[in-house]
Protein backbone atom coordinates (compact mmCIF):
# COMPACT_ATOMS: atom_id res chain seq x y z
CA UNK A 1 0.00 0.00 0.00
CA UNK A 2 1.43 3.35 -1.10
CA UNK A 3 1.66 6.09 1.51
CA UNK A 4 -1.47 8.22 1.68
CA UNK A 5 -3.71 5.49 0.31
CA UNK A 6 -6.65 4.97 2.66
CA UNK A 7 -8.37 2.03 1.09
CA UNK A 8 -7.04 -0.38 -1.47
CA UNK A 9 -8.68 -3.23 -3.36
CA UNK A 10 -6.26 -5.78 -4.83
CA UNK A 11 -7.56 -8.19 -7.46
CA UNK A 12 -10.95 -8.46 -5.83
CA UNK A 13 -13.55 -10.82 -7.27
CA UNK A 14 -16.95 -11.53 -5.82
CA UNK A 15 -20.03 -13.52 -6.75
CA UNK A 16 -23.20 -14.04 -4.72
CA UNK A 17 -23.83 -17.74 -3.97
CA UNK A 18 -24.91 -19.52 -7.12
CA UNK A 19 -24.63 -16.35 -9.22
CA UNK A 20 -22.22 -14.95 -11.79
CA UNK A 21 -19.27 -12.73 -10.86
CA UNK A 22 -20.48 -9.31 -9.81
CA UNK A 23 -17.00 -7.92 -9.24
CA UNK A 24 -14.28 -9.31 -11.44
CA UNK A 25 -10.60 -8.91 -10.57
CA UNK A 26 -10.95 -5.30 -9.54
CA UNK A 27 -8.02 -3.26 -8.23
CA UNK A 28 -8.37 0.24 -6.91
CA UNK A 29 -6.53 2.66 -4.58
CA UNK A 30 -8.41 5.46 -2.89
CA UNK A 31 -6.78 8.39 -1.17
CA UNK A 32 -7.19 12.05 -0.30
CA UNK A 33 -10.35 13.82 0.72
CA UNK A 34 -13.50 15.07 -0.98
CA UNK A 35 -15.38 12.77 -3.37
CA UNK A 36 -14.95 9.95 -5.84
CA UNK A 37 -17.90 8.91 -7.96
CA UNK A 38 -18.57 5.31 -8.95
CA UNK A 39 -20.85 5.12 -11.95
CA UNK A 40 -22.14 2.33 -14.13
CA UNK A 41 -25.28 0.81 -15.56
CA UNK A 42 -27.65 -1.33 -13.49
CA UNK A 43 -25.92 -4.51 -12.40
CA UNK A 44 -22.44 -3.07 -12.96
CA UNK A 45 -21.54 -3.92 -9.36
CA UNK A 46 -21.61 -0.48 -7.74
CA UNK A 47 -23.54 -1.40 -4.58
CA UNK A 48 -21.64 -4.67 -4.20
CA UNK A 49 -18.35 -2.77 -4.50
CA UNK A 50 -19.40 -0.50 -1.64
CA UNK A 51 -20.40 -3.48 0.51
CA UNK A 52 -17.00 -5.04 -0.18
CA UNK A 53 -15.13 -1.81 0.60
CA UNK A 54 -17.07 -1.51 3.87
CA UNK A 55 -16.25 -5.08 4.84
CA UNK A 56 -19.90 -6.17 4.85
CA UNK A 57 -19.07 -8.75 2.19
CA UNK A 58 -15.90 -10.81 1.96
CA UNK A 59 -14.25 -11.09 -1.46
CA UNK A 60 -14.07 -14.58 -2.99
CA UNK A 61 -10.54 -13.75 -4.03
CA UNK A 62 -8.21 -10.81 -3.63
CA UNK A 63 -8.26 -8.49 -0.64
CA UNK A 64 -9.28 -5.03 0.45
CA UNK A 65 -6.92 -3.37 2.89
CA UNK A 66 -7.54 -0.35 5.07
CA UNK A 67 -4.71 1.95 6.18
CA UNK A 68 -6.19 2.45 9.66
CA UNK A 69 -6.31 -1.29 10.26
CA UNK A 70 -2.52 -1.42 9.85
CA UNK A 71 -3.04 -2.31 6.21
CA UNK A 72 -4.87 -5.45 7.25
CA UNK A 73 -7.96 -6.65 5.38
CA UNK A 74 -10.93 -4.45 6.09
CA UNK A 75 -13.09 -5.75 8.93
CA UNK A 76 -15.85 -3.77 10.62
CA UNK A 77 -15.23 -5.60 13.89
CA UNK A 78 -11.63 -4.37 14.22
CA UNK A 79 -12.20 -0.78 13.05
CA UNK A 80 -15.88 -0.26 13.88
CA UNK A 81 -17.41 2.65 12.06
CA UNK A 82 -14.20 3.95 10.49
CA UNK A 83 -15.60 3.05 7.09
CA UNK A 84 -19.18 4.26 7.11
CA UNK A 85 -21.70 2.99 4.60
CA UNK A 86 -25.02 4.73 3.96
CA UNK A 87 -27.29 2.18 2.30
CA UNK A 88 -29.30 2.89 -0.80
CA UNK A 89 -32.51 2.35 1.13
CA UNK A 90 -32.37 4.25 4.44
CA UNK A 91 -35.03 1.91 5.84
CA UNK A 92 -32.35 -0.78 5.89
CA UNK A 93 -30.31 1.31 8.23
CA UNK A 94 -32.71 2.91 10.65
CA UNK A 95 -34.26 0.48 13.08
CA UNK A 96 -34.34 2.03 16.53
CA UNK A 97 -37.37 3.81 17.95
CA UNK A 98 -36.04 7.37 17.61
CA UNK A 99 -33.60 9.21 15.35
CA UNK A 100 -31.33 10.14 18.25
CA UNK A 101 -31.20 6.50 19.44
CA UNK A 102 -30.24 5.43 15.94
CA UNK A 103 -27.55 8.10 15.67
CA UNK A 104 -26.23 7.04 19.10
CA UNK A 105 -26.16 3.34 18.16
CA UNK A 106 -22.76 3.42 16.43
CA UNK A 107 -20.86 5.54 18.99
CA UNK A 108 -22.23 3.33 21.78
CA UNK A 109 -20.88 0.28 19.98
CA UNK A 110 -17.54 2.03 19.78
CA UNK A 111 -17.56 1.92 23.59
CA UNK A 112 -17.59 5.68 24.09
CA UNK A 113 -18.68 7.26 27.35
CA UNK A 114 -22.27 8.47 27.60
CA UNK A 115 -21.31 12.16 27.47
CA UNK A 116 -19.21 11.66 24.37
CA UNK A 117 -21.98 9.65 22.72
CA UNK A 118 -24.35 12.54 23.42
CA UNK A 119 -21.87 15.03 21.98
CA UNK A 120 -21.47 12.93 18.84
CA UNK A 121 -25.24 12.69 18.45
CA UNK A 122 -25.72 16.44 18.86
CA UNK A 123 -22.90 17.23 16.43
CA UNK A 124 -24.13 14.77 13.79
CA UNK A 125 -27.69 16.03 14.04
CA UNK A 126 -26.56 19.66 13.83
CA UNK A 127 -24.21 18.95 10.96
CA UNK A 128 -27.03 17.39 8.96
CA UNK A 129 -29.60 19.96 10.11
CA UNK A 130 -32.08 17.50 11.61
CA UNK A 131 -31.82 18.37 15.30
CA UNK A 132 -35.58 18.91 15.34
CA UNK A 133 -36.15 15.29 14.33
CA UNK A 134 -34.14 13.80 17.20
CA UNK A 135 -37.12 12.32 19.03
CA UNK A 136 -39.09 11.25 15.96
CA UNK A 137 -39.42 7.57 15.04
CA UNK A 138 -37.32 7.10 11.86
CA UNK A 139 -39.97 5.17 9.98
CA UNK A 140 -42.34 8.14 10.15
CA UNK A 141 -39.98 10.50 8.36
CA UNK A 142 -40.17 11.55 4.74
CA UNK A 143 -37.78 9.99 2.22
CA UNK A 144 -35.38 12.93 2.36
CA UNK A 145 -35.45 13.07 6.15
CA UNK A 146 -34.82 9.33 6.40
CA UNK A 147 -31.83 9.64 4.09
CA UNK A 148 -30.43 12.50 6.17
CA UNK A 149 -31.04 10.60 9.40
CA UNK A 150 -29.23 7.57 7.95
CA UNK A 151 -26.32 9.81 7.03
CA UNK A 152 -26.28 11.31 10.53
CA UNK A 153 -26.16 7.80 11.99
CA UNK A 154 -22.96 7.24 9.99
CA UNK A 155 -21.42 10.65 10.66
CA UNK A 156 -21.73 10.13 14.41
CA UNK A 157 -19.11 7.38 13.99
CA UNK A 158 -16.70 9.99 12.59
CA UNK A 159 -15.62 7.73 9.73
CA UNK A 160 -12.40 8.15 7.79
CA UNK A 161 -14.14 6.98 4.62
CA UNK A 162 -17.77 7.56 3.79
CA UNK A 163 -19.45 5.22 1.30
CA UNK A 164 -22.72 6.52 -0.07
CA UNK A 165 -24.96 4.32 -2.17
CA UNK A 166 -27.24 6.42 -4.39
CA UNK A 167 -27.50 9.26 -1.86
CA UNK A 168 -29.92 11.31 -3.95
CA UNK A 169 -32.11 8.50 -5.29
CA UNK A 170 -35.85 9.24 -5.10
CA UNK A 171 -35.38 12.70 -3.63
CA UNK A 172 -37.33 15.69 -4.86
CA UNK A 173 -35.24 18.49 -6.49
CA UNK A 174 -35.05 20.58 -3.34
CA UNK A 175 -34.09 17.64 -1.10
CA UNK A 176 -31.59 16.54 -3.76
CA UNK A 177 -29.99 19.98 -3.80
CA UNK A 178 -29.89 20.01 0.01
CA UNK A 179 -28.32 16.52 0.08
CA UNK A 180 -25.67 17.58 -2.43
CA UNK A 181 -24.82 20.67 -0.42
CA UNK A 182 -24.54 18.52 2.68
CA UNK A 183 -22.30 15.98 0.93
CA UNK A 184 -20.03 18.73 -0.34
CA UNK A 185 -19.62 20.05 3.20
CA UNK A 186 -18.54 16.72 4.69
CA UNK A 187 -14.90 16.29 5.56
CA UNK A 188 -13.95 12.61 5.01
CA UNK A 189 -13.16 10.90 1.73
CA UNK A 190 -16.47 10.06 0.09
CA UNK A 191 -17.12 7.29 -2.41
CA UNK A 192 -20.48 7.96 -4.04
CA UNK A 193 -22.34 5.60 -6.36
CA UNK A 194 -25.13 7.02 -8.47
CA UNK A 195 -26.95 7.00 -11.76
CA UNK A 196 -27.41 10.72 -11.33
CA UNK A 197 -24.40 11.89 -13.34
CA UNK A 198 -25.35 15.54 -12.87
CA UNK A 199 -24.99 15.02 -9.14
CA UNK A 200 -21.66 13.23 -9.64
CA UNK A 201 -20.51 16.14 -11.83
CA UNK A 202 -21.37 18.55 -9.03
CA UNK A 203 -19.84 16.63 -6.15
CA UNK A 204 -17.01 14.37 -7.36
CA UNK A 205 -13.58 15.31 -8.62
CA UNK A 206 -12.67 11.79 -9.68
CA UNK A 207 -14.80 9.09 -11.17
CA UNK A 208 -14.60 5.31 -11.59
CA UNK A 209 -16.67 3.84 -14.41
CA UNK A 210 -17.74 0.23 -13.87
CA UNK A 211 -18.90 -2.21 -16.49
CA UNK A 212 -19.93 -5.74 -15.56
CA UNK A 213 -17.86 -5.75 -12.40
CA UNK A 214 -14.71 -4.42 -14.02
CA UNK A 215 -13.24 -0.93 -14.12
CA UNK A 216 -13.77 0.47 -17.60
CA UNK A 217 -11.88 3.66 -16.86
CA UNK A 218 -11.03 6.12 -14.09
CA UNK A 219 -10.02 9.73 -14.17
CA UNK A 220 -11.12 13.30 -13.61
CA UNK A 221 -14.88 13.65 -13.83
CA UNK A 222 -14.55 16.49 -16.31
CA UNK A 223 -12.50 14.33 -18.67
CA UNK A 224 -14.64 11.21 -18.44
CA UNK A 225 -18.06 12.85 -18.62
CA UNK A 226 -17.18 14.78 -21.75
CA UNK A 227 -16.61 11.53 -23.67
CA UNK A 228 -20.08 10.33 -24.69
CA UNK A 229 -18.71 7.26 -26.50
CA UNK A 230 -16.91 6.08 -23.38
CA UNK A 231 -20.00 6.61 -21.25
CA UNK A 232 -22.11 4.88 -23.88
CA UNK A 233 -19.85 1.84 -23.66
CA UNK A 234 -20.67 1.67 -19.94
CA UNK A 235 -24.39 1.99 -20.68
CA UNK A 236 -24.51 5.60 -19.52
CA UNK A 237 -25.31 8.97 -21.00
CA UNK A 238 -23.52 12.26 -20.30
CA UNK A 239 -25.05 14.48 -17.62
CA UNK A 240 -28.13 16.31 -18.88
CA UNK A 241 -26.42 19.68 -18.64
CA UNK A 242 -23.70 18.50 -21.05
CA UNK A 243 -26.17 17.07 -23.52
CA UNK A 244 -27.30 20.55 -24.58
CA UNK A 245 -30.70 21.80 -25.53
CA UNK A 246 -32.64 19.10 -27.44
CA UNK A 247 -34.18 21.78 -29.72
CA UNK A 248 -31.40 24.23 -30.51
CA UNK A 249 -28.47 21.93 -29.76
CA UNK A 250 -26.64 24.59 -27.74
CA UNK A 251 -24.66 23.01 -24.91
CA UNK A 252 -24.47 24.58 -21.51
CA UNK A 253 -20.96 24.68 -20.07
CA UNK A 254 -21.30 24.67 -16.31
CA UNK A 255 -18.35 25.21 -14.01
CA UNK A 256 -16.85 21.90 -12.98
CA UNK A 257 -17.13 20.95 -9.32
CA UNK A 258 -13.39 20.35 -8.97
CA UNK A 259 -12.68 23.92 -10.06
CA UNK A 260 -14.79 25.12 -7.17
CA UNK A 261 -13.64 22.59 -4.64
CA UNK A 262 -10.17 23.85 -3.74
CA UNK A 263 -7.51 21.74 -2.11
CA UNK A 264 -7.44 18.14 -0.97
CA UNK A 265 -8.81 16.62 -4.12
CA UNK A 266 -9.47 12.89 -3.90
CA UNK A 267 -7.38 10.54 -5.94
CA UNK A 268 -8.08 7.19 -7.45
CA UNK A 269 -5.69 4.92 -9.25
CA UNK A 270 -5.95 1.49 -10.77
Amino acid sequence: MVNGVLLEARGVSFAYPGGPKVIDNLSLSLSGRQSIGVVGANGAGKSTLLLLLAGALKPNSGEIVFAEAGRAPVNPATTPGRIGLAFQNPDDQLFLPSVSEDVAFGPRNQGLAATEVQERVTTALEETGIGHLARRPPFQLSGGEKRTAALASILSLQPAVLLLDEPTASLDPLARRRAMRLLASLEPLKIITSHDLDMIWDTCQQVVVLKQGRILTTGATQDIFTQPELLGEAGLEPPLRLQGCPRCGVAYSPPFAADLAGEGVAAVSV
Binding site: P76, P80, L85, F87, F95, N109
Partner: peptide, 9 residues
Protein backbone atom coordinates in the same frame (compact mmCIF):
# COMPACT_ATOMS: atom_id res chain seq x y z
CA UNK B 1 -25.34 -5.69 7.81
CA UNK B 2 -25.97 -2.03 8.64
CA UNK B 3 -25.80 -2.86 12.35
CA UNK B 4 -22.53 -4.76 12.00
CA UNK B 5 -20.99 -1.89 10.04
CA UNK B 6 -21.79 0.40 12.95
CA UNK B 7 -19.86 -1.82 15.32
CA UNK B 8 -22.72 -3.94 16.63
CA UNK B 9 -21.75 -7.08 18.48
Amino acid sequence: QAMLLRGFA
